[in-house]
Design a protein around this nucleic acid. Structure first.
Lengths: 218, 218
DNA sequence: GGGCGGGTCATCCGATCGGTTGACCCGCCC
DNA sequence: GGGCGGGTCAACCGATCGGATGACCCGCCC
């Protein structure tokens, strides 16, 4: 069959760029235009836009930033993109942060690869081609973290523990947290104890610090 | 006099790009190359690099990201650039964050303008030309924050209070903070009280949350 | 020389937190 | 049907924190 916008030989990889920073987006566009075998077919500034454009344009790969400002975030967008029936695009995460929480959530949401914006352009190009074929690509620091996690799995917080932590980071006391979640103060303390253990801290201030540092909270 | 690398008419604005994200940097390069009257003469991935290149290349404007990973940060780089004797370049901050602390510190360090990466490319081009003439340019959200600060000045933390807050965010208790800073526990409590008041919180957890949120700590 | 911001310290008290131990319930999976 | 992870709750106690008040010292600036 003939592909209208493809040159001779193998067709170029069709890309959808999703990033809330217009400058970065426009810059990436210009950068990718110079790359061989890569064609940017669309750009989105929000998750909703990305979903709509992906459905219409059917890109091979979506370049996705995890932080998208307003609306649904990159993880949720990734989940919906990869869960789409039929020809779901491969999602290649391209972001600034390499915290365990971000990596884990992105991979859990179905991302094919995880690159850092500090990556060299050639690596980005190679990763895009790899992602188009469904191959997994991780930036070295990301791969390192994944390995470290395999070796010594970090206990992840339960939903309830995250609830507690969220309220804690608002500065609420145990009684207030209890009231907010319709549970007893004793239960709050139990959860907190487990949160302390998992985060390897022993004060509420420390817990909030780690939570913010590791980007465990929305 | 003739300018070697300038076209006919007025010379192009000579730009030095400083950003630790290679992809963003390369993207910006491609983007700015397409802009009329703007010429990128160099790129740096660290503050140290930026200082060295600025001394050698004498750019009109330095596009500066505040977050630079390793080494000195964007604020310190800006300070040294603008403090340089003779023909110091104008520094145009181009970053992701628009917290009061970042804005205040950047302007205090001598930045000519403060743009967000979410800004439209045309605005960026216009801002660069404006910065070259020494004019101040602020992204709307940034300008808004500056105005809000003028109307109701946020009390800024003293150095000592920042010390206390730093240790607090490590999860230390008052006694430990006191020992670490060689002061009495009573003094720690006094400082903490003032920190609470300034940050508008009433618990240590809340203080840590605000500190992290507002990027008050290094 | 007086005011003021910043830093230091003390005392007192009630409220809260952190630590511990033990318990019950539910859904799920082997 | 027994184990297990997750969630819930209780009671107790010492340690710590938060709140209020008052005080001293120093450097700086008008």
């Amino acid at each position: 069959m003939t592909v209208p916008d493809a040159g001779p030989g193998s067709a170029a990889v069709r890309i959808l760029v999703c990033d809330d920073h217009v400058v970065v987006r426009a810059g990436l566009l210009a950068l990718l235009d110079s790359a061989p075998g890569i064609k940017v077919v669309g750009e989105a500034g929000t998750g909703e836009e990305a979903l709509a454009l992906a459905a219409k344009l059917r890109p091979d790969v979506v370049l996705m930033d995890l932080q998208l400002g307003e609306g649904i975030d990159g993880v949720e967008t990734t989940r919906r993109l990869t869960a789409a029936p039929g020809t779901a695009p491969h999602v290649l995460v391209l972001t600034t942060y390499d915290t365990d929480a971000d990596i884990t959530r992105a991979i859990g949401a179905g991302a094919t690869g995880y690159l850092l914006k500090a990556e060299r352009p050639e690596e980005l190009f190679a990763a895009i081609h790899a992602a188009a074929r469904g191959r997994t690509v991780l930036s070295p620091p990301v791969a390192g973290r994944v390995m470290a996690n395999m070796r010594s799995p970090r206990p992840s917080l339960t939903d309830r523990e995250r609830d507690i932590l969220t309220h804690l980071s608002r500065g609420l006391g145990n009684r207030e947290i209890a009231r907010a979640l319709f549970i007893s103060e004793a239960t709050v303390k139990t959860h907190l104890r487990r949160v302390y253990d998992k985060l390897d801290v022993d004060t509420r201030a420390g817990a909030v610090a780690v939570a913010k540092e590791q980007r465990l909270l929305p």
